[in-house]
Write a protein that binds this DNA or RNA. Structure first.
Lengths: 252, 252
DNA sequence: GTGTTCTGTCTCATATGTGAGACAGATTCT
DNA sequence: AGAATCTGTCTCACATATGAGACAGAACAC
């Protein structure tokens, strides 16, 4: 028994709306989630009353309300990691003058919790709240390289587990294993063009008491403008920040 | 009829958890919201199954899950204002080398949607998702000054409506009216020390088709370091950004 | 160690929420 | 203009969710 159907459907609606680029008609919600029309309207009415949904009557669509926003910021405020990491990330950006981000692993994806943009640098796809396939990003690779092999295998058991993105990145368990071995050997993870053409990243995992990767710190740059020596410097700065965050997390 | 009680209580639980600084025991949720214990557990179980809540069993507490986070980022992603305003805000910070933020009015509070930090500047209390009393902040004052008088009166009908913050800012409808008249006369809103000692802000409203204030753009600085001439320059830059966003919003 | 309180899970009588379908107004299509 | 479709709201028989209370294990206080 996993609780009340109305509660579950309420949250399914909320999650569905959060995944849409724009507000949608009630009929779309009902058909997409397989809910009866009358129930859908009743749940939407409750959600509107509580401020989690708004009904844009002129357009006959429903969108997210400010209550959804505040639930999201409540999560962020409660996330100890974000609080601990914010200062070190800010200082990293000031030091290296490149944009940086903190990500966590969630299933086979990374989820970005912090983005610190450097002046004059472009906005990144890795904005707060964005999900990307872990195996295609430096952030994800850094964490996967620090995970036990059985856990990586459980996450990526076969070819079907590999989301593709313009044909880049590893596409089989063997290719991923090889890439993660190189990552461990090198001491930091790399990503060149795989997510955004022309951009590269270096990343280092943040480890907890048990040397388990709970996040990763990455810096992103235009890869033509960065020499190999500069790249090694960046990775050293990123590693220092990741270790600083680890120390804050584990109380030294 | 405003929909399903289970749906409403689910969202009340979500809102309650979002307002707590830390995860809380189920008993606290039930007593705070006046819900029966068995129902509370059942709803929490559904919320956990859908990923909006996590049960930290060792500590016997419940906290927000990643589903809450994604609902929040869905709201932000859908907010047309944030999308339109992001580029102009970034350029403003690069130009003036001070931190800037975009806020909307929600009831008597402002709610911050965008914060762009400038290098070397301190993190601000006005982080994304933060609420502050509108009458104490430059952002709020800018919007209130552009609202019709009857609407301002409806928001702040008597002394009880004025949240206090270390005894700063207007405390009566008459004082607010006077401050807003000065704001309109000056052409931009100001705030000195009221929220954070040592910090000041200037703000300009973003207006829609009907000259209705839908947001405001503000810049925040250490007020000892900024001469009056520089302050006027900043307000000009802020106004230019606010008008740019208005034009994008209204399609010129 | 003992007693008390808290936590999580479950039962079951009954209160009520649900979903199929109807209705009316608005919008879209031909 | 008329027909078809969409939207939002409502009714009501019946399916099922609810809440009071019980139980057992864990944690806490003395």
């Amino acid at each position: 028994m996993t609780g009340s159907p109305a509660a579950r459907n309420t949250l399914r609606i909320l999650r569905f709306l959060a995944a849409q680029p724009d507000p949608v008609p009630a009929e779309r919600i009902a058909s997409s989630l397989g809910l009866p029309r009358a129930s859908t309207y009743r749940l939407l009415s409750a959600m509107t009353a509580e401020g989690f949904v708004v009904h844009l009557e002129e357009d006959r669509v429903f969108g997210l309300g400010v209550g959804a926003f505040e639930a999201g910021t409540g999560y962020v405020r409660q996330a100890p990691l974000r609080r601990l990491a914010h200062g070190p990330m800010t200082r990293l950006v000031d030091r290296v003058e490149e944009s940086a981000h903190l990500a966590v692993l969630h299933g086979r994806d990374v989820l970005y919790l912090i983005e610190e943009r450097a002046p004059g640098r472009p906005s990144l796809v890795t904005d707060v709240g964005v999900r990307l396939p872990a195996h295609l990003t430096a952030s994800g690779r850094a964490m996967l390289a620090a995970l036990p092999r059985v856990q990586v295998r459980a996450l990526f058991p076969d070819r079907d587990a590999f989301a593709t993105h313009r044909g880049t990145g590893p596409a089989t368990p063997a290719a991923l294993r090889s890439l993660l071995a190189e990552t461990r050997q090198r001491g930091y993870a790399v990503e060149d063009d795989e997510v955004t053409p022309g951009l590269a990243s270096v990343a280092v995992p943040v480890l907890d008491h048990n040397r388990h990767p709970v996040a990763s710190v990455a810096v992103t740059f235009a890869h033509e403008s960065v020499l190999a020596r500069r790249r090694a410097e960046l990775s050293t700065e990123v590693a220092e920040t990741a270790h600083d965050i680890s120390r804050r997390l584990t109380g030294r």
